[in-house]
Design a protein around this nucleic acid. Structure first.
Length: 464
RNA sequence: UCCCCGAUAGCUCAAUGGUAGAGCAACCGGCUGUUAACCGGUUUGUUGUAGGUUCGAGUCCUACUCGGGGAGCCA
């Protein structure tokens, strides 16, 4: 007897095999004809396998007739073709062993649909629901695609530190890391908190980006990517923000901005294509239950060519489009969400890559164009989610970078090691950052980012 | 953090300032190679918290908590 997954048992190739299945009951239907139907799920796929439990089983009256959603069982039996509609196969049980009961009067998950808000409060049980099982599988598929994509292109997977002493990475508020006793802080002579007494001998924080470390490795080994947790202490309360999220940051030596855009486009297409090919059942579920356009959107991404548009051209389109916006469009100001959404959702109905932004609204490390007014930045915008990738060609010229840091009122001495990369053997290089959860949102159609990460951390909430 | 909306049974929701209800779930019974099964019956409440107005508050007012939508910041 082979132990197989529900996914395997649902395939017609399994017919005739004597197998062991282990998982959780989703529902039970009794027939007074003398048997019961059990729907068994083990997480291996979206669908359940139907178990036929005959009244002749020794524990039929005592146990099987009391099985409810959530009970855990081992089923030994024979896979056979199902005579009824709804499934290709079913399993005739020879033995059903109950491992754990789930009191139906108390078990929070019912057979019928629950709201996402309710399931979020049951984060320890929600992976047992159809939706969150599908999200978990697709999230896993996306992570696999990410590694496959870069590994096949000879990128090195680099582990950037999670604790960082760099308090000026410029990407928002940071979480402080300390072992100091908050009720008894050491003070120096000026009465300020004395961080030299802290664990690392200085102020430390959770990372907001692995980019600078990625640049170090790209400027030594050519192509690198980081893939790890990222922390932002911003008080953001939206369906697209988390305080703890996962980010992928490739960084490539000898890549200019167009190479960077080519890579980003190929990258997103690979993720979408793999989701369609490797998770067809889950994607069908998302299209039926979550977002009707889930599959067609991904097919569109795979087939289409992304629109590439300079910031200046985008501003011209927005000024001429006749659409009324809450915020006015003007060259030199950052585009608002409504502007970005108009471009990707209405005007082009495609992913859009915007590039060459005004330098005043972008980070210090982005390469200054010859016009002196714009920098080699790019944002990839997708329908419904908005900005999914942000990247740039990095400023590789030491003197330009130093003057840019001064413009941003940053102290170059704090970045001595970053500047060393330009001081010794500098190269043109580029990179970008992709938010994993926003990607999962885009692929699945899930509306809230809190529902595409197992245990969301947001302002005021770190449950589970 | 700002703007708007919401919180009523285990879940999803209804209830003109005047006796708190339905569907689903659960439980009991019936029926059936069933498919979110179906049919009949039974049970289910500190109406988010704390104040206030009123003869009377689920309903009106204030504050707070939590949730949702939008905005900002961004990935």
């Amino acid at each position: 007897m082979d132990k197989i997954s529900v996914a395997q048992a649902r395939q017609v190739e399994a017919v005739g095999r004597e197998v062991r299945l282990q998982g959780w009951i989703r529902t039970r239907r009794d027939s007074k004809g003398g048997f019961s139907f059990l729907e068994l799920n083990d997480g291996s796929c979206q669908g359940n396998v139907q178990i036929l439990a005959d009244a002749s089983l020794p524990n039929y009256q005592s146990e099987i007739l009391h099985l409810t959603a959530g009970c855990s069982v081992t089923v030994d039996g024979v896979v056979r073709a199902s005579p009824a509609k709804g499934q290709a196969t079913e399993v005739q049980a020879q033995a059903v062993t109950v491992h754990g009961w789930a009191d139906a009067a108390k078990y929070p998950l019912q057979k019928k649909g629950h709201s996402m808000e309710f399931l979020r409060e049951q984060a320890h049980l929600r992976p047992r629901s159809n939706t969150f099982g599908a999200v978990a599988r697709v999230r896993n598929c996306i992570c696999r695609s990410i590694h496959d994509f870069f590994q096949e292109r000879e990128f090195l997977y680099i582990h950037a530190p999670i604790v960082t002493a760099s308090d000026c990475e410029g990407a928002g508020q940071m979480f402080r890391v300390t072992t100091l006793d908050l009720g008894k802080l050491p003070r120096n002579e000026q009465g300020e908190i004395d961080y030299t007494k802290d664990f690392f001998g200085r102020s430390t924080y959770l990372t907001v980006s692995g980019q600078l470390e990625g640049e170090i490795f790209a400027c030594a080994l050519g192509k690198a990517y980081t893939f790890g947790p990222t922390f932002r202490a911003e008080n953001s309360n939206t369906s697209r923000h988390l305080a703890e999220f996962w980010m992928i940051e490739p960084e490539m030596a000898f890549y200019e901005l167009t190479d960077n855009m080519d890579l980003a486009e190929a990258f997103l297409k690979r993720i979408c294509r793999d989701a369609l090919e490797r998770c067809p059942e889950d994607m069908k579920f998302f299209a039926e239950r979550i977002d009707k356009t889930a599959i067609s959107t991904l097919e569109g991404v795979v087939k289409s060519q992304f629109v590439r548009l300079s910031y200046t051209e985008a501003v011209e389109i927005l000024l001429k489009c006749g659409q009324s916006f809450e915020f006015p469009v003007a060259w030199g100001t950052d585009l608002q969400s409504e502007h970005e959404r108009y471009l990707t959702e209405q005007h082009f109905k495609l992913p859009v890559i915007l590039y060459d932004y005004p330098k005043a609204i972008k980070a210090f490390y982005m390469r200054v164009n010859d016009d002196g007014k714009t920098v080699r930045a790019m944002d990839v915008l997708v329908p419904r989610v908005g900005e999914i990738i942000g990247g740039s060609q990095r400023e590789e010229r030491l003197d330009v970078l130093e003057s840019r840091m001064k413009e941003h009122k940053l102290d170059p001495s704090a970045y001595w090691w970053y500047l060393d990369l330009r001081r010794y053997g500098t190269v043109p290089h580029s990179g970008f950052g992709l938010g994993l959860e926003r990607t999962v949102q885009f692929v699945t159609g899930m509306a809230n980012i809190r529902d595409v990460i197992p245990f969301p951390r947001v302002p005021g909430s770190a449950d589970f």
